[in-house]
Design a protein around this nucleic acid. Structure first.
Lengths: 129, 129, 129, 129
DNA sequence: GTGGTCTAGACCACG
DNA sequence: GTGGTCTAGACCACC
């Protein structure tokens, strides 16, 4: 399910965060779907439970998942208008990267193409149901 | 010349690396142009000389600069293919961020608008030259 | 009757306790009025009966309700001094939050405005009776 | 410096967070003042370093402190207009508590008096220099 | 069973 | 020296 690179410079918990985010973004994980428990994932990945929990906690803080007392962790349904702060962050990141892209000669068409790709990846993920 | 954010979570030496790369990429630093010496930059930025040296070492390792014993460090001419590698990186980064943007509800129009902004920033930059 | 937020970090039984306390304090529940049975409430809220019972037990321990064997749970009449204790608690909480508010730059006017808002909410509430 | 209640239901790291916040709010800790290092505080309080770090990390996330690579942790200067999210949280909390206060018969004068107290506590803290 | 907190102690990156 | 990450393993609260 997840593949981690323990030798990477990027901390394991960040890799986990990114993986989970990616799966949510791509529609592979669905709203209110249950995530593997901390312990389960810990033994599957042979990673310390604390490390998993750190990742889950951060995901919860960012609004991607929520956890129910004694029940487990679940994918949070995306709410319209929620998380303006995160949107602003993403906008900033995009603007910075696009400035780079402009310097490197990317055209508006290429950018639109990338957007279309991002959209279609998500749709395919959802279609997999 | 450089502006560093000492409070950032990103290590200072990485910020330095990125700044130099950016300046080379944007043509602010030209091939075979001499970079400020470790000592000079260290006192200018009030940053530990070890930190500067670490950045220069890494830039050399990545082929962005070269150093001549006792002479100093210089900008390396762009290698064939190096540009393509950078473009691929930027494309990857954009795709990832756009996936997130799609999830957060950004529209194609908003993305185009961001691109236009990035473009105009560049134009203004050139006009300033 | 009750609205619980299962996603909240605050345990469900604590939410229950607070709701009941609030309803007693606000005069919605009257002295010696019977509370819904554990079983009833459990199925109404789709919450584990153990959770309800834990809340009732705690409320009884704190003197807010009393229970008669085989009859059910009832609202206890307010004790002398109990009210004062609650007021002191609220005062403490306000003082702490106001310290934070001062630090964050809230002005006296804003605070007064908030108080007016709180008042008007109450008035509307009473009008609804 | 700090007093913790290890037997409290409130986690140690939260107690720490609140203590540090309080000291900042009250002007006992000043902008850019260095906080005790994780290790130092850990041995002073005979609390695990991880616990201290968890508290510091959260304080950093909330914008109360910042940490410099290899230098230590410092009190963040309060920036005007920063952290609208936290202000909104405080406003919410105040409104809720004030509603309670209104029910309990607090007058506008009492509320103003509390605000004055909160202000003066801070002033006294700063005056201690 | 679940997640949350904490300890003890190791190792790394940074400056 | 500093903070950041990770492991191993314990104990608790919640449901």
């Amino acid at each position: 399910m997840f593949e981690l690179d323990v030798r990477s410079r990027k901390p394991i918990y960040e890799q986990l965060i990114d993986k989970v985010k990616e799966m949510i973004l791509h529609g592979i994980l669905h709203p209110d779907e249950q995530l593997p428990s901390v312990r389960t994932l810990s033994s599957q990945l042979t990673v310390n439970p604390n490390t998993i929990q750190k990742a889950y906690r951060e995901l919860e803080r960012e609004g991607y998942i929520y956890s129910l007392q004694g029940k487990g962790s679940f994918v949070a349904p995306m709410q319209q208008g929620q998380n303006e702060a995160i949107k602003a962050e993403v906008r900033d990141g995009l603007l910075r990267l696009m400035a780079e892209a402009v310097y490197l000669g990317f055209t508006a068409t290429e950018i639109s193409e990338l957007y279309r790709q991002a959209e279609s990846v998500r749709e395919r993920g959802i279609a997999h149901d």
